[in-house]
Computed example of a mutant assay.
Amino acid sequence: MRFSFGQVVIVGGAVLAAMPSHAQTFDPRYPVCMHVYSGANGGGGEWYDCSFTSLPQCRATASGRAATCDLNPYYPVNAPSPRLRHGRSS
């Protein structure tokens, strides 16, 4: 059985479209993320919760869980702070 190039492209596109997509893992609005491991027995795999403003806050939440706290690699640390605009008064 022979397949034409067009058939291969269509089948390949259908396979890629059927695969699950992954959302953005890290939220760039928060500097600290908690990496939660639920393992094969927990059934949920692992995920990141990027909703913490400090490492101590994250560590308090992760205490007693299979989780670690890391700095968010996508948090804009070196971004310049926005300048305040002042209108001219007459």
Rank of each mutant, 00 (worst) to 15 (best):
M1N: 09
M1F: 06
M1S: 15
F3K: 06
F3M: 05
Q7G: 08
Q7M: 03
V9H: 00
I10R: 09
V11W: 02
G12R: 01
A14M: 14
L16Q: 05
L16W: 09
L16N: 03
A17C: 06
A17V: 10
A18G: 08
M19V: 09
M19D: 04
S21P: 00
S21D: 11
H22E: 06
Q24V: 12
T25R: 15
F26R: 03
D27P: 06
P28G: 04
R29L: 08
M34W: 01
V36K: 04
S38T: 12
S38P: 01
A40N: 11
A40H: 10
N41V: 10
W47Q: 05
D49A: 15
D49Y: 06
S51K: 11
T53V: 07
P56M: 08
C58Y: 02
R59A: 08
A60Y: 11
A60R: 15
T61W: 15
A62I: 07
A62G: 07
A62D: 03
S63Q: 13
G64K: 11
R65L: 12
R65F: 11
R65K: 14
R65S: 07
A66P: 05
A67E: 04
D70P: 00
D70Q: 10
D70M: 14
L71D: 06
N72S: 02
P73L: 04
Y75M: 01
P76L: 03
V77C: 00
V77W: 15
N78E: 04
A79E: 10
R83I: 06
L84E: 11
L84P: 02
R85N: 08
H86N: 02
H86A: 07
R88G: 06
R88I: 13
S89R: 15
S90D: 11
